[in-house]
Write a protein that binds this DNA or RNA. Structure first.
Lengths: 339, 339
DNA sequence: TTTCACATTTCAAACGTTTGAAATAATTGA
DNA sequence: TCAATTATTTCAAACGTTTGAAATGTGAAA
């Protein structure tokens, strides 16, 4: 209702109080050289007039923004949302805001987002790169002007000279496989994701290392890949279970949505053994409790922790608690959750 | 690797090019009074030196930030995430960034977030209020300095003098009930959420209006409420199905998680009729396809559209395409999805 | 009364832009 | 050649802060 009244600035307060702008500023910032009574007067007036310091001005002066940029593929993916959940809280608790930008797994959009954040003079960047990111020039820009960058959740295709925080997907898959072995399984299948995703291989390595450490022979018949598409998943499963002489008794899947497709398919074939296949997937979806044939366990990836570690590391870099060239690699362990 | 070189500013460019700062600024902003050749020289130099305009400076000068603040309870709630999905894309496409702040449904945190965003001089605020928000002073601050506010997703406890964008939960529940009636049901139960949530009543009204419009008598035996807690849900269901002479044949539930609890419970009791109860809930969860006893339909709330309408309205307010006192109420219709 | 020390306040520049007004340079016409 | 246009560039102030240096005021010691 009230019309756009003149903005309450330091100058405005100063005029009201008949003192200089710098006195007002120092009083509000509690400088020891300012008289106590003056401070009180200023602070009261500031409160009464609802003075709100202008962050743009402060940012300009201090050459920083107290904003962290976050670029990620997609907020509909619950994994990423969960990383943000942890990240946002930690940032806020430390006086930082975050600006989130979705790339939709599109390189062009990712570059645009990066440029936008660069203009905004974010104090740091946290990025989960798109599937198609091979060239990192748009990210390097930040480091070139001294703005630290943390890669997270997705592993860049080069290995050195960057800070990164990733889920320990190797360990997760190793433990899941070990769990199945401990339950007596020897014919364990691995259903991977797209081959171009590095996690597909990391998880495969976890799987195969667990087999090896238990002297279980590896058979390539027990390994298949899917691009997440439902039909594709089903044909992968058909391959894994093709040889009726040699059927897997357990399955580790790249993630739960494809595992659920697999389970559904296996149940649709009324084969007496297929119902008994014990399955584990990455994810730990909350709705598992409502499934009639739930996986025996889930690999909980702790995405909140991935997000939190990313922001923690970034803030340390921003505050020079870690040298920017002292490249860090943080692995967040998975946890096997038995249902 | 490169050390924090001197920042590339207009002044820096101007010195390199031996011309004034204002010429450089105008050249970059394509002023018609600037010579074409000069423009070319400036633009090339800017590109070579990777000049990035400092947004803090521009914001300060233009007295705006091109940032939209969003306050919402919780990013783990998929509904809110989906609103952000639509909202973020629309904002970015229009040159705005969004800063998201979670209140955790805590009033104190909501107030803190509001103050932080106020300091950041966001150009507008979109807020889904916490459960406990009764007093709106922290939000009114924005409007007092001329910053438009859109309430969304959650209905404020007052009704007038605000802009809001809400899911048309009445219509959704009406259609669901009508759908069940059309399938021949006459004993339809309604399982509501907490009574202090306004949507509980809106949905109830949709339910009861559908009954009335079809001349179906209403029985309070067929209405129960839950606070979302699982035990609470089960006891509500027990009440609804207590009278074995008069058992509902269909159920409309406040949202799917509680509906799934309800279905699970009904199935656990091996009553011959309980399996046939036809259920509908708000949500349209992607995992329904994996349930053995899926709801017959879901009420899709289109949260992306709620988010998108909120940002659209806000941008219109920011750009003075709508008078700030011309309070808008946008209802986003639900869609019944039959499984 | 001077002088000095200290407390307190103010000055002035800086952060990086934008922009209307003023200044200068180039071009045209007579 | 000179004034009058027109094209182009520069000046200078402003946006709202922060902060070291300078200025002012006060009281006490000499």
């Amino acid at each position: 209702m009230m019309k756009q009244n003149t903005p309450v600035t330091l100058k405005f307060l100063a005029e009201k109080l008949k003192m200089s702008v710098s006195t007002v500023s120092k009083a509000l910032n509690n400088y020891p050289t300012i008289n106590e009574y003056t401070k009180k007067r200023v602070q009261e007036m500031a409160k009464d007039l609802r003075f709100t310091p202008n962050k743009s001005a402060i940012n300009l002066k201090e050459r920083k923004s107290r904003i962290i940029g976050v670029i990620l593929p997609n907020l509909l993916d619950h994994y990423f949302t969960r990383t943000i959940y942890g990240l946002e809280q930690f940032a806020t608790a430390n006086g930082y805001n975050i600006i989130i930008s979705q790339s939709q797994d599109d390189l062009e959009k990712e570059i645009q987002s990066a440029n936008m954040l660069l203009r905004s003079r974010v104090d740091g960047l946290i990025i989960a790169i798109s599937k198609h990111t091979q060239d990192y020039a748009h990210v390097d820009q930040f480091e070139n002007i001294g703005t630290p960058v943390v890669y997270y959740a997705r592993n860049p295709s080069f290995n050195l000279n960057c800070h990164k925080v990733l889920g320990n997907t190797f360990q997760g898959c190793y433990e899941a496989t070990q769990f199945l072995i401990d339950r007596g399984h020897r014919k364990i299948a691995y259903l991977g994701g797209p081959k171009m995703i590095s996690f597909t291989h990391d998880r495969f390595n976890g799987y195969i290392n667990a087999l090896r450490d238990n002297d279980i022979p590896f058979s390539s018949d027990f390994v298949a890949y899917t691009d997440f598409d439902q039909e594709n998943t089903i044909s992968a499963i058909q391959n894994l279970f093709a040889d009726s002489e040699n059927v897997p008794t357990a399955l580790v899947a790249f993630k739960e949505p494809i595992l659920f497709d697999a389970i559904k398919y296996l149940r649709s074939i009324k084969h007496p053994n297929f119902d008994k296949v014990e399955c584990i997937g990455f994810g730990n979806n909350a709705f598992i409790t409502y499934l009639d044939a739930p996986p025996i366990a889930s690999i909980e990836e702790n995405p909140e922790s991935v997000g939190e570690n990313a922001i923690k590391l970034l803030l340390q870099l921003i505050n020079d608690q870690i040298e920017i060239q002292d490249y860090q690699k943080v692995m967040v362990d998975c946890k096997l959750v038995v249902h």
